[in-house]
Amino acid sequence: MDLAIKYGFLALLIGMIIFFSVFADGFAGPYSAVFIFQSVAITGILALGVTVTLVVDGFDLSIGSTATTALMLSSYVMVVWEMNAFWAVTLALAMGALVGLVNGLLIVKMKVPDLLATLGMMFLLVGLQRIPTEGRSISTGMTLPDGRVTTGTFSKTFLALGRHRLDFFIDNLIPVSVIVLLVVAVLVWIFMEMTRHGRLMYAIGSNERAASLAGTNVNKYKIIAYMISGVLASIGGILLAARLGRGDIASGNNLLLDSVAAALIGFAVLGAAKPNVFGTIIGALFIGILLQGLTMMNAPYYTQDFVKGAVLVVALVFTFALSRRGGTAH
């Protein structure tokens, strides 16, 4: 039973890969693998942010809208203000950090419950990103509210973030976004597992009062967690902008739910029964592989959300009903 809980989900993942490799033509192969990674890169990065806030027993509902705000902001910086890629990226990241800071202060100082604070922030950002362009998407040649026609363009460097592929045995194989995902995942993993800051964040999530009585500055770490979440969401938004090549107001609708699902599925991996970086990445990949496989077997696109939901429910049952520790956790 213990083994089943610990390795059950990984076994399921491997079984699924074998199943699709046999039954779905073209599933097994480097391009397909890269496609899966690319499809989960942005949600994966956001899910890592969700994971960090879950670790301190918080929750960030604003990540999806932070990402789309980063998308709109970076587009606006280049197309309307005609600045370069460096500024587009820097300002978007700073915006993410600021959103995280405000979330953290609302929760820590104003004592607003985390779900409500970040829900409010989500609404605020969804509205805010529409104001400068009166609700229209941003692209070169669009007319601004004051009648000007934009002449700025997305810089080549910026677009490369979303479109360039690096050589890896095969020419033009791995997209930059996949590299970014892997680098972010490794960095967050190192931070959470190998530094004392990560350790204290886990302590806060498990028993905030005990952590505080052991001399931990709980408020500081909670704010840091939300800032990490905000910055990671911005990275996701920047990659999305670079892939789309326009400030698409309608994109990124699914980002919040998908990334939360990945982080929650991660609870079930290796029987952790708690938020963890490795699990989150596996969770994101699990959904990616399942959707890719089903698509190749001609499952219609509109079944995708149903499949994701089903996976999430199964993973949650794994975590909370079957695992001993999950049973005692709240």
Binding site: R196, R199, L200, A203, S206, N207, A211, L213
Partner: peptide
């Protein structure tokens, strides 16, 4: 139970919480 034990941690991690700075070089544990 409410003021000291960190349930998610093992014995070692429970012991070292207040003095992690003495068990790390820089920020690395």
């Amino acid at each position: 139970a409410s003021n000291a034990v960190v349930q998610a941690f093992d014995i070692t991690k429970n012991i070292t919480i207040p003095f992690l700075d003495r068990h790390s070089s820089g920020t690395f544990l």
